[in-house]
Amino acid sequence: MSGHPEALRAENIVKRFGQVTALEGVSISMRQGEILGILGDNGAGKSTLMKIITGFQPPTSGRLIIGGQEVALRSVDHARELGIECVYQDLALVGGLSIYHNLFLNREITYKGPFRLLNNEAMRQAAIERLGEIGVNIPSVDLEVERLSGGQRQAIAVARAVGGASRILLLDEPLAAMGAREAGAIIDLILRLKQRGDLAIAMIMHNYAQTLDIADRIILMQRGRITYEKESAATSVQELMDIVRREYRAMRAA
């Protein structure tokens, strides 16, 4: 796997929120054509790490190297220009807006001309196409997102992230609210995206077995640090459970 070119490297990322230190020096590497599984306790800093890579929050310190170049991300738009797409844990959908407006939120298709009016028809068509492509079944793209079930919403958020010409894809618990069939469809989609070969994918997950199944490499985060990192093939659910349990006992003893 290490033969794949590196798409992104984060070095020694520290993030503090006032008194709380969410990340205490985290380094990760993402490679093209590879799926990185991120596991860890609640509050370990997984989402925070992701939000730093998407340009949503600046790190307190640390470096980000994207495509071989060090960058200081200015904004979500900046990160997106560099090919970074994501599905946030809270999905970042607007309930009162239609599915197609949500799919194109902040990168709307507009008519040419001085007023750049919204081209709703083009967005609607593109939305139908994209949802069809990735096999999401929804009665109408005109529906407001608040009318959808949790799993359907999640599918919309995933569809939004995989639509662009992304090179780095971050998914924060993309299967959390999904039924077995829908989760299967999303996993299929992610594996298909991996086949493209030029996309680096990171998934934050809670289900060990599922993660080992999909991911090429996994890391375990605990209390703001990476405590374990291995190729999926070289570890097992049992080993991961043992680590977490040992950690938990040590914490209780202290």
């Binding site: 998407t54 949503f56 946030y88 959908l93 902040n106």
Partner: peptide, 12 residues
């Protein structure tokens, strides 16, 4: 509609 979500989507 969703202040945090809108800013996560990159809206200022």
């Amino acid at each position: 509609g969703n202040l945090l979500g809108a800013s996560e989507a990159g809206i200022n």
